[in-house]
């Protein structure tokens, strides 16, 4: 991997990686550290990393680091108290986006990760399986469960409104 390819990877993927880490950890500083960490790893291993496969390496590394941090923190909360969750980037958010962002935080980490890989990065079930170490069918089930949970929460809130 050349310096040019590395810098292109920073330009192309750092925003998406940061967004992923931010949604997973809900902590800007931690997310920034994670992204920096994975790029340092890439730079150190640039001799053995194919420039064409750097995206999957980056997202796999970020995912693992996020899961490790979440397992340590065990800060998962129930779906019932999402209204009080702070919004990370309030500007440019529509009402639905705020709601979705809050709901996303309440999903189990695995569901959250696969959902973001699917919606934000456009990965297929198979690719997500490779990134997360899950089987394709597991990925599909987690995504379906996550969609259903989000839908149910939206539905319940609409009823309240």
């Amino acid at each position: 991997m050349t310096v040019s390819e590395f810098n292109n990877a920073v330009d192309t993927y750092s925003d998406g990686l940061y967004r992923f880490a931010l949604k997973m950890t809900e902590d800007e500083e931690e997310a920034r550290d994670i992204v920096q960490e994975v790029f340092i790893r890439v730079w150190e291993k640039r001799g053995s990393i194919d420039g064409n496969k750097v995206k999957s390496y980056l997202f796999t590394s970020v995912h693992h680091l996020c899961i490790d941090i979440l397992r340590r923190h065990r800060n998962h909360k129930s779906l019932d108290d999402i209204e009080e969750e702070p919004i990370i980037e309030p500007r440019n958010y529509t009402g639905l986006n705020k709601l979705l962002d809050a709901i996303l935080k309440q999903l189990p980490p695995v569901q959250r990760a696969v959902l973001m890989f699917r919606d934000y990065e456009g990965y297929t079930y198979e690719e997500i399986g490779q990134l997360t170490g899950l089987s394709e069918s597991q990925v599909k089930v987690y995504i379906y469960r996550a969609r259903l949970a989000v839908k149910k929460k939206i539905e319940s809130l609409e009823h309240v409104i």
Binding site: D11, R32, Q36, E89, L96, N97, R147, I154
Partner: peptide, 18 residues
């Protein structure tokens, strides 16, 4: 509505990484 639309987030330390 349960499908997320990617929002624009900018990584602040981009230039330092290059």
């Amino acid at each position: 509505k349960a499908f997320f639309i990617p929002e624009k987030v900018v990584f602040p330390g981009k230039n330092q990484l290059k």
